[in-house]
Structure formats: structure tokens, C-alpha cells
């Protein structure tokens, strides 16, 4: 059952806050990004048993446009967007997002937007089903914009669709 011990001298977990700060400092950005940090965390228990819950998925990817990225300038949608969970797009745009292009790729949508996996689990009764739409949220530099515009819009759409719970998958 338990695998072998693999002793270490440094933590294995990557700190993306440290990595990002040092990377942009090397590019001459003088002021490090200030990450969101809260003392209080909200908590809502499931309102009913999971097999009775309708679930939605939220992604940071954008609709596929098939365009080449423009060097140095972030693209991607600046607005919340939604797609059909019954007939999802095969590809999504991840060119504007920060992920490890040297170690992996994002050609397989299920590796970051697991609608087929979720539909399969729904078919087995693990959840009641998928909400009719998944939602896309821009990864905005401005936390205020996310808090005041995007998060309320996602909430509105979740309610409109009768979603009881949400899986959020940032790339």
C-alpha cells in the first residue's frame, strides 16, 4: 500500500508566488504582484446529498480563436463567458494564461476542463448531473475587477442554471 520513502532536504512543493516574483524582478518589474490573502474563509456545506446536486465547472481558459499569441501582451476574454456542457468545444484558448509550456501542453481539454469525466460520474449517479453551462472567468490582474464584476456575474449565471455546487479549475 505505502510506497517507498523518498527523503528530501528541500520542500518539493513549488512556490509559484516566489517563482513569479523572482521571474518578474529579473525582467525589471520593480513592484511585485500583491496576491490576495484573507484571514477569513467562507464555508457552505452541501445543501443536499451529492447525488442530488447539479454541478457546474468554472475555468480560466477562453473560447478558442485559433489565433497566434501576440508577444508580451495578454489576450483572452475580459468578460465572463459560458459554454454548453452538453456540447462543449473541443478546444479552448489557453495562450494568454501562465502555465508550464516546457513540461506539458493544453491540447486535451479534459486535462483542465473535465466535462466528460464529470458527465461519466453523473451517469453513475455520483452527482445529479451537470448544469447546462460551464463558465469562463478572465484571470484579471485587478482583484477588484474580479471581486466586483466577474465573481457576481458567475454567481448570477450559476443561480440561473440551478447549480448546487461548483468545481473551479484554474490552469
Amino acid at each position: 500500500m505505502a510506497g517507498p520513502n523518498r527523503p528530501i532536504t528541500h520542500r518539493t512543493m513549488v512556490s509559484y508566488i516566489d517563482r513569479t516574483r523572482e521571474f518578474y524582478a529579473a525582467q525589471g518589474y520593480e513592484r511585485p504582484y500583491r496576491w490576495a490573502h484573507f484571514d477569513e474563509v467562507p464555508f457552505t456545506p452541501l445543501p443536499k446529498p451529492l447525488p442530488e446536486c447539479r454541478v457546474t465547472v468554472i475555468t480560466t481558459a477562453a473560447p478558442w480563436r485559433g489565433e497566434a499569441p501576440v508577444d508580451g501582451v495578454l489576450r483572452g476574454d475580459r468578460e465572463v463567458w459560458s459554454g454548453s456542457t452538453a456540447d462543449p468545444p473541443a478546444r479552448l484558448d489557453t495562450a494568454h494564461l501562465a502555465w508550464d509550456r516546457e513540461s506539458t501542453h493544453t491540447d486535451d481539454r479534459e486535462s483542465f476542463l473535465p466535462l466528460a469525466a464529470l458527465a461519466e460520474l453523473a451517469g453513475e449517479g455520483r452527482v445529479a448531473g451537470l448544469a447546462p453551462r460551464f463558465h469562463g472567468v478572465p484571470t484579471d490582474y485587478s482583484q477588484r475587477r474580479t471581486l466586483e464584476q466577474d465573481a457576481p456575474e458567475v454567481l448570477r449565471r450559476c443561480r440561473e442554471d440551478g447549480a448546487d455546487a461548483a468545481l473551479l479549475v484554474p490552469l
Binding site: M13, V14, S15, Y16, I17, D18, W35, A36, F38, V41, P42, F43, T44, P45, L46, P47, I58, T60, V137, T139, Q143, T146, L147, D150, A151, P152, V154, L155, C158, R159, A163, D164, A165, A166, L167, L168, V169, P170
Partner: peptide, 26 residues
């Protein structure tokens, strides 16, 4: 994305984040 999870949760929708940047989310 974590901010969206918090907002949904504050308004009664339970959430789970699936993520690889553990420090940013935590």
C-alpha cells in the same frame, strides 16, 4: 479564481478548487 470560489461560497454555493498552484490558492 480563488476569489470566485470565495464569492460563490459566501452566497451559498459550495465549491471545490482543483489546482496545482497550492501556495497561491491557500
Amino acid at each position: 479564481m480563488s476569489l470566485v470560489a470565495r464569492h460563490l461560497e459566501e452566497h451559498g454555493i459550495p465549491t471545490v478548487v482543483i489546482g496545482s498552484a497550492r501556495d497561491i490558492v491557500e
